[in-house]
Simulated assay, not measured.
Amino acid sequence: MGQVASRTGSVAVTSTTVDDALRVGTDVYHPHRLRLLDESRPFDMRLRAVTYGPVTVGKLSYAGPVRIETDDMEVAYEANVPLAGELGCEAGTERFVASPDRAVLFGPDGPTSMTGFGRGRPILGVRLDRVAVEHTLADLAGASEPLRAAPLVDLTTGRGREWWLVLRSLLDLLSGFDDRSSLVHNELVMRPLTQSLLTGMLLAADHPLLPRLLEPAEVHLPGTVRRAQDIMHDRAAEPLSVPDVARATGLSTRGLQAAFRQHLGLTPIEYLRRVRLERAHADLITADPAVATVAQVAHRWGFTHVGRFAAHYRARYGTSPSVALRSGS
């Protein structure tokens, strides 16, 4: 598998030309073609979108009806929910209709199209990085393969309705887009929320691996947790992931997560972060600030993003890592 996208950003655009709308849509989602179905209307495209890591969520509208076509998206899956009216959709040779009650899910392979839109008929468009989707599916199901999902997701009942509640919360947050202090621009809020959206999609869509995802995770004895803890302490400076720890202890990723939650009240990644923060803290308060830097210490203990490291450090120790480095306290 490739590398998971780690983009972060936001865009608010009103385009009055097709060329500009194509450029923006390509930058935010993927390359596509755009055909106007009523050229008597002035062209107007509006998009408000945010990207956190592998997930982009945006509200997209056109003043008049249009047809959007893509070739293979290759690097992403895409889910679209019309917020009013219906959307005629095609994926390869299949045809179906999306509506506020039925989301359409496009895979990365094969041509797609959507026909509809018009004033008062926006959609919620979600781009999901292919590597992230397939990594998450492999972690949850223990099978490394593409997602082969049915093209429509029922949003009115069961897990589909619950997934829509996650989508709806993101849509509601987008209403505060113009306020830079809004939670929609807060990475600490949005990253876990967008990850929940990705995982929720895997649980809401119909696909061959769904039964594995719905099986109760087996909870193992505390001895297994202790072995996992030992691995995290011994290999904290290595590029260690939760699936690595799970494999080393003979568990599935879900089994390890369930065991940690039951016996420690933490997820494995939270525990590993705590171990690494303790090591980084010890280095910071003993290092020579004339020689060492916060970035060096953060990278040594697996924190690739210094800003996020500083936020975690402050939450744990009540001060910034730069202050700890200077004061030795």
Score class of each variant (00 low, 15 high):
Ile231Cys: 07
Ile231Lys: 04
Ile231Met: 05
Met232Asn: 06
Met232Phe: 04
Met232Glu: 02
His233Asp: 14
His233Thr: 12
Asp234Val: 09
Asp234Glu: 15
Ala236Arg: 13
Ala237Val: 11
Ala237Cys: 11
Glu238Trp: 01
Glu238Ile: 08
Pro239Asn: 00
Pro239Phe: 00
Leu240His: 02
Ser241Lys: 10
Val242Arg: 04
Val242Lys: 04
Val242His: 03
Val242Asp: 11
Pro243Gln: 03
Pro243Arg: 04
Pro243Gly: 12
Asp244Gln: 02
Val245His: 06
Val245Met: 14
Ala246Lys: 06
Ala246Leu: 11
Arg247Gln: 10
Thr249Gly: 02
Leu251Pro: 01
Ser252Met: 03
Thr253Lys: 02
Thr253Met: 02
Thr253Trp: 08
Arg254Ala: 15
Gly255Trp: 09
Gly255Met: 06
Leu256Lys: 03
Gln257Leu: 13
Gln257Arg: 14
Gln257Tyr: 07
Ala259His: 05
Ala259Ile: 00
Ala259Thr: 14
Phe260Arg: 01
Phe260Met: 12
Gln262Trp: 06
Leu264Arg: 13
Leu266Thr: 15
Leu266Cys: 02
Thr267Lys: 14
Ile269His: 12
Glu270Thr: 09
Glu270Cys: 04
Tyr271Trp: 15
Tyr271Ser: 06
Tyr271Arg: 07
Leu272Pro: 09
Leu272Glu: 05
Arg273His: 09
Arg273Glu: 13
Arg273Phe: 08
Arg274Gly: 13
Leu277Ser: 07
Glu278Asp: 15
Glu278Thr: 05
Arg279Trp: 01
Arg279Thr: 03
Ala280His: 07
Ala280Gly: 06
Ala280Glu: 08
Ala282Ser: 11
Asp283Gly: 00
Asp283His: 09
Leu284Asn: 01
Leu284Ser: 10
Leu284Cys: 01
Ile285His: 00
Ile285Asp: 06
Thr286Glu: 11
